[in-house]
C-alpha cells in the first residue's frame, strides 16, 4: 500500500458527525463554537442566519451548524434538523428572565420527529458570571429528568474562560462511538 492511500485510509476512519447548535439569541452558541475551533472570541457578533465550521477532534470530524437564535429566525431551525447526530442546546445561565422561554423552545425541539432519539447536550453557559444559575437548577427548569427517549447530559460551562466545553463535547462524541 502506498503512503498516499494509507493516509487516505487513515483519514477515512475519521467519523463524521453532524452537530446542531441551537438556543436563544445571546446564549453563546457562536462563542462555544469558536472555543472549539481555538479561535478568538473577543469580537463575536450576533449571528444572522448561521455559521458552519468543521472541527477535527478525537478521531471525529465534527460538522457544527450554529444557527442564529433570534425569535424571527427560529422558524428556520427545522430546516437544519435532518440527519443531526447530536443536538447541543446552549443556555445563558445568567438570563433568569428568559429561562422559561428557553425551556419552552427546548421542549418543542424534543417533540420534533426529525430529532427523535438524537442525544442532547445542554450547555449551561456563562458560569463565569456571578448571577449564573447552577446547572442543577437549569436541569430542573428544563425538566431534563423527565427525558426517557434519548441520552442527555447537562454541562456547566463558560465560553469566556473555556471551562466545561471539552468535557461536554467529549460526552457528546462518546454517544456516537
Amino acid at each position: 500500500m502506498g503512503l498516499l492511500s494509507l493516509l487516505r485510509k487513515l483519514k477515512r476512519s475519521d467519523k463524521e458527525v453532524r452537530i446542531l447548535f441551537l438556543g436563544l439569541d445571546n446564549a453563546g452558541k457562536t462563542s462555544i463554537l469558536k472555543r472549539l475551533a481555538d479561535e478568538d472570541i473577543s469580537e463575536i457578533r450576533p449571528t444572522q442566519g448561521f455559521n458552519i465550521k468543521t472541527v477535527q477532534k478525537d478521531g471525529f470530524k465534527m460538522n457544527v451548524w450554529d444557527i442564529g437564535g433570534q425569535k424571527a429566525i427560529r422558524p428556520y431551525w427545522r430546516n437544519y434538523f435532518e440527519s443531526t447526530d447530536i443536538l447541543v442546546y446552549v443556555i445563558d445561565s445568567s438570563d433568569r428572565i428568559r429561562i422559561e422561554e428557553t425551556g419552552i423552545e427546548f421542549n418543542t425541539l424534543l417533540e420534533e420527529n426529525k430529532l427523535a432519539g438524537v442525544p442532547v447536550l445542554v450547555f449551561a453557559n456563562k458560569q463565569d458570571l456571578p448571577t449564573a444559575l447552577p446547572a442543577s437548577e437549569i436541569a430542573f427548569g428544563l425538566n431534563l429528568h423527565a427525558i426517557r427517549d434519548r441520552q442527555w447530559q447537562i454541562q456547566a460551562c463558560s465560553a469566556k474562560n473555556g471551562d466545561g466545553i471539552q468535557e461536554g463535547m467529549e460526552w457528546a462524541l462518546k454517544t456516537n462511538k
Binding site: 442566519g49 424571527a72 430546516n79
Partner: peptide, 8 residues
C-alpha cells in the same frame, strides 16, 4: 435570498 443566506 433569505436571512439564512446572510453569511454567504
Amino acid at each position: 435570498v433569505t436571512v439564512m443566506h446572510f453569511n454567504e
